[in-house]
Design a protein around this nucleic acid. Structure first.
Length: 281
DNA sequence: AAGCCGATCAACCGCAATGTT
DNA sequence: CAACATTGCGGTTGATCGGCT
């Protein structure tokens, strides 16, 4: 059997609170103080669950609640605290006078989290993730580099290899003016079979019409770069959704480090010849 | 003007922790 | 110490609104 309900569901109103209900709750708490939420609705003449009353009071009616937009300083505080505490919204709210855990949680999920993702910051670990950036703009810069080989090697050490491979796979569709190496045409004429695609390849084989064959331009370019394991094959478990998901793991270990040196939050470790502005939009 | 869609946020749900008997 | 009650918390839902087509 399921757990017993927190209150008698019969005759208990749900949904948005009316001004009249709010006033009843305010009046009652003003006189008796908060607490004893189970008997409060009955004594206050409210057809509400005690839990609902508590939530309404703590999240909306409390006189010390600060309403309105979050300031820049508040957002920065939330980010800092979240990097240390994770999703401990009540603990974060305790450090932000006038803000409720619910309000902070909502603001995080609707604003801050998206902003961090756009900036290439993993909102869970608070560490930089280039694979969250706009891949097309990233690759436009990468492939236009005269010293593509060294840049690609460096980038591959920063990026999720699956993402980089996928991005290369997609890139010919997006770049109107792809830059190929001088021996690319030759490489394209010696395509790699699916069974051999993960290994260095120079022998000519029959082109295939499957997904692997579309990796050929990339593999051809990577022959310039050097070791083919710079871009390993797409792993079977690779899932685009995973890039945008926020795993429930605690960020605490990284956070302690980050707290010690907050400026390292945004340290992407770019090579010296990278132009960071080119990746921003 | 109407319908669609994404963003926002108040409110709800269920579980865990804590308190009380 | 077990059982039950209460409170706190975090995740999720759904109503509402505004922008876009």
């Amino acid at each position: 059997m399921g757990r017993s309900p927190c209150c008698d569901k019969n005759g208990v109103k749900k949904g948005p609170w009316t001004a009249e209900e709010d006033q009843k709750l305010i009046d009652y708490i003003r006189f008796h103080g908060p607490g004893n939420w189970r008997i409060l609705p009955k004594n206050a003449g409210l057809q509400r669950c005690g839990k609902s009353c508590r939530l309404r009071w703590t999240n909306y009616l409390r006189p010390d609640i600060k309403r309105g937009r979050f300031s820049f300083e508040e957002e920065e505080t939330i980010i800092q605290l979240h990097s240390v505490m994770g999703n401990k919204w009540s603990a974060i709210a305790a450090r932000l006078p006038g803000r409720t855990d619910n309000e902070i949680k909502n603001h995080w999920n609707t604003h801050i989290r998206k902003r961090l993702v756009r900036s290439g910051i993993d909102p869970v670990t608070h560490s930089p993730r280039l694979d969250l950036l706009d891949l097309s703009s990233l690759l436009s810069v990468l492939l236009s580099q005269p010293n593509f080989s060294s840049v690609a090697t460096q980038a591959s050490s920063l990026l999720n290899p699956d993402v980089l491979r996928l991005a290369f796979l997609l890139f010919p569709l997006q770049n109107p003016n792809p830059i190929y190496s001088p021996n690319l045409d030759q490489n394209l004429q010696t395509p790699i079979t699916s069974s051999e695609s993960s290994q260095p390849q120079t022998e000519s084989t029959t082109p295939t019409n499957n997904e692997t064959s579309s990796l050929e331009p990339m593999n051809a370019r990577l022959d310039d770069v050097g070791p083919v394991d710079v871009l390993p094959p797409l792993s079977e478990s690779f899932d685009l959704d995973s890039l945008m998901s926020t795993p429930m793991s605690s960020p605490q270990q990284k956070s302690i480090e980050a707290e010690a040196n907050p400026s390292s939050f945004f340290d992407f470790g770019f090579p010296d010849d990278f132009i960071l502005d080119d990746f921003m939009f």
